[in-house]
Design a protein around this nucleic acid. Structure first.
Lengths: 193, 193
DNA sequence: CATACTATTTACCGATCGGTACAGAAACGA
DNA sequence: TCGTTTCTGTACCGATCGGTAAATAGTATG
């Protein structure tokens, strides 16, 4: 019988994809074994905590991706304006132009939110905070920066919901364009509102 | 043994609440019987189609509520401006100021979306259409009206996600305020953008 | 080549899943 | 009052759920 030695970390992206596609309850161990290619034995060898640990690992990797690809650039970039543009590019790519769903957002709506409360909250709090930081450094006054950041994150999540509901991924790209130009306008000397 | 004769329609609000709270997969028949107070026998008497029919009925009642309370007023009101204000009031009330989740939105993110595709799509399509109609009649030029309507619905859904993720219902009310004033500004003679 | 450790397969567990069958109780119509 | 219909409780079904145990196979170390 074939024996392909796998690593724990190799399985995590597949796990994230399965949870994204089926939700936490909907992702049964049989579908997980199928999509990851790992048998129950291997799965429980790598994740002794079962489904919960698998989901935690998936959330962790997603968070890590956003931290390095989005949050840290927003916080540390020399040019906050281009960091913001990069954010929209990264986000569009990550969510496959609206045809992929946000696992964290889906968990937030689900009743399993309580089990992953800290990870779910941190993801959104960090996103809002990092974006507000970039806006502030780009010259946006403090309170407006926080409001604009919140508005942007809200728009991204809402666009994912509506795009998927209507089967129209374009909703996502349209929304991204709209909020991006609103952000850039707000930090272009003239104030919004 | 006690015998309280129930009606099918009495069960539907409870069903909607259960699905909202636990999701489609997460709402087991045992929790459904518990929360509705109906035994399996009654449940399958009223909904021979099982869980799927229960969920369809729940979605149907939600849609009906929105049609009569929100969509029709938006389409038919003599004063579209106040109809729009009424919409925000109704929506805030319905979602309990952000502490209640949108079942249709949750279904849209879930993999069960495919099973209820038509109902999910119609809900959002009708909402956008009705709001755009009110905006147009309020003097907003056609293409802008559609974009503003979409932006508003997106914001509502996103706000529900983020509010629940952050455990901060205020996000929802803030978002409602923001988009409402943006809509009113857009139809107050001066054009937006 | 022996050993130890890591991965993987396989069989199995009790619990719960959604759903069915059916008998009996309550309400209704005559 | 007596059927008939409408509703409900209960027992039961096979399937699948998440999870465990342990024997085995592969790899690395010596």
């Amino acid at each position: 019988m074939p024996k392909i030695v796998a690593e724990r970390s190799d399985a995590i992206p597949s796990l994230a994809e399965v949870f994204r596609e089926y939700g936490f309850e909907g992702a049964s161990l049989s579908t997980i074994t199928e999509k990851t290619g790992l048998g129950k034995g291997s799965l429980y060898h790598f994740f002794p905590g079962g489904k919960e640990e698998m989901a935690t690992a998936a959330l962790g990797e997603i968070d890590e991706w956003f931290v390095t690809q989005v949050f840290e650039p927003l916080r540390n970039a020399d040019d906050p304006r281009s960091a913001i543009s990069d954010m929209f590019r990264s986000v569009s790519r990550y969510f496959r132009s609206g045809s992929r769903v946000c696992l964290v957002g889906a968990f937030a709506l689900d009743n399993v939110r309580d089990r992953f409360r800290a990870q779910v909250r941190d993801y959104f709090a960090e996103w809002c905070g990092a974006l507000a930081s970039a806006l502030t450094r780009a010259g946006c006054p403090e309170p407006d920066a926080a409001a604009l950041a919140e508005e942007t994150v809200v728009a991204v999540q809402g666009a994912l919901v509506v795009a998927r509901a209507l089967d129209e991924p374009e909703v996502f790209e349209r929304t991204l364009q709209r909020v991006q130009s609103r952000l850039l306008a707000a930090i272009s000397g003239e104030e919004q509102r």
